[in-house]
């Protein structure tokens, strides 16, 4: 180790006194030319997200599932799919309530959870999102309670109808939340992330609804799941292609494993969904694969964000290129 350290410092002296991130002997030729950069002893420039597993990614999954479920509940009710509407309504309420709980545990000071509603700040996607989630959670809880107890059915229906608006927002605001950070793999993906989240949410909601509804009534849920899987797969592929170097964290290491698993599970579950009505086994296979796929996407996203923040090359190289292009 000692000789390698000395070599690293000496090598750094000519061009990168502060040390390039990787000056391990033999790796020089393998390095892509665009990754040549200088840094302070390979230390990260930005701080990694402090959010934890499993709370944050599970919330992303639940929020998406809840949002898409409530949208499904509204359309199901309007088109006369009463059984499906009931499942979706309950899933939406459970998802939102559990999600809020997970978010509270993510705070450094959970007892100050209500400070989230202290102000309304349009410049903060988390403030906007807190208001969206509070409204959505309240409405979906009212809708589900009325559905289960039969009390105040008109009010329950009105609340459910309103979740048709809050649902799609709940499923997509989280993409803006993560994209509005200095984390390169998140911010540079701000165009595709909302569609990726929407697709993941549709797949998750479709999966829960097909698992929780008699097969004969779950036809539209299977279609929702298949459409969601397609949306998630396509937007994910477009995102990784467009990001290029900055998208590397989505392909490598822990995040890469999650994202690859997500792609296989989502694609498999999605292809299975249209024919899953034929048997209970197929329904279970498709529904569980899609649920696991949606979860893997969210876990992969957090892992990629952390990896992207931890390596200074993702921060320095694009910024340096931007400066060199303008000067």
């Amino acid at each position: 180790m000692r000789s390698e350290d000395a070599r690293g410092i000496a090598e750094g002296g000519t061009r990168t006194a502060a040390g390039r991130a990787r000056t391990v002997a033999g790796r020089e030729q393998e390095m892509v030319p665009e990754a040549e950069f200088r840094s302070y002893y390979g230390r990260p420039v930005i701080k990694p997200p402090v959010w934890h597993e499993p709370n944050m990614p599970t919330y992303l999954y639940l929020g998406g599932m809840s949002g898409a479920s409530s949208t499904m509940a509204v359309v199901a009710r309007l088109t006369g799919h009463a059984r499906l509407a009931r499942t979706a309504r309950i899933a939406a309420a459970l998802g939102a309530a559990t999600g809020v709980g997970l978010l509270a545990t993510e705070l450094g000071r959970p007892e100050r959870f209500l400070n989230m509603l202290r102000v309304f700040k349009p410049t903060s996607p988390m403030s906007v999102g807190s208001w969206i989630l509070a409204t959505h959670g309240g409405l979906s809880a009212a809708a589900a309670s009325s559905e289960l107890t039969g009390i105040l059915p008109r009010l329950g229906d009105a609340a459910a109808l309103a979740t048709g608006l809050t649902g799609p927002l709940t499923a997509t605001y989280t993409a803006v939340l993560v994209a509005d950070t200095a984390v390169p793999a998140w911010h540079e993906a701000y165009r595709e992330l909302p569609l990726l989240f929407a697709g993941s949410a549709l797949a998750a909601a479709g999966a829960v609804a097909m698992l929780g509804t008699p097969r004969a009534d779950a036809g539209p849920a299977r279609t929702v799941a298949a459409l969601g899987a397609a949306m998630e797969t396509i937007s994910g592929a477009v995102m990784e292609h467009r990001l290029g170097f900055v998208g590397e964290p989505y392909r490598e290491g822990r995040a890469g494993r999650f994202m690859r698993a997500a792609r296989i599970l989502t694609l498999g579950g999605g292809l299975l969904a249209p024919v899953a009505g034929r048997s209970r086994t197929l329904t279970a296979l498709s529904g569980l694969a899609l649920t696991a796929g949606s979860l893997c996407t969210r876990f992969g996203l957090l892992a990629a964000g952390r990896a992207s923040a931890a390596d200074p090359k993702y921060t320095v190289v694009p910024q340096r290129q931007r400066l060199d292009a303008t000067s």
Binding site: G67, A68, T71, M72, V75, A76, T79, H81, P125, G164, G167, P168, L169, A171, T172, Y173, A175, V176, A179, D180, Y190, R191, L193, P194, L195, F197, A198, A201, L202, G206, G219, P220, A221, T223, V224, L227, G228, M231
Partner: peptide
Amino acid sequence: MWRWAGAAAVSLAGAVAVAFLGS
């Protein structure tokens, strides 16, 4: 970012609507 999210939210609602129309 909000414009892209808005488009995604509309797509989500649209996909659900399409799924039920076809069903």
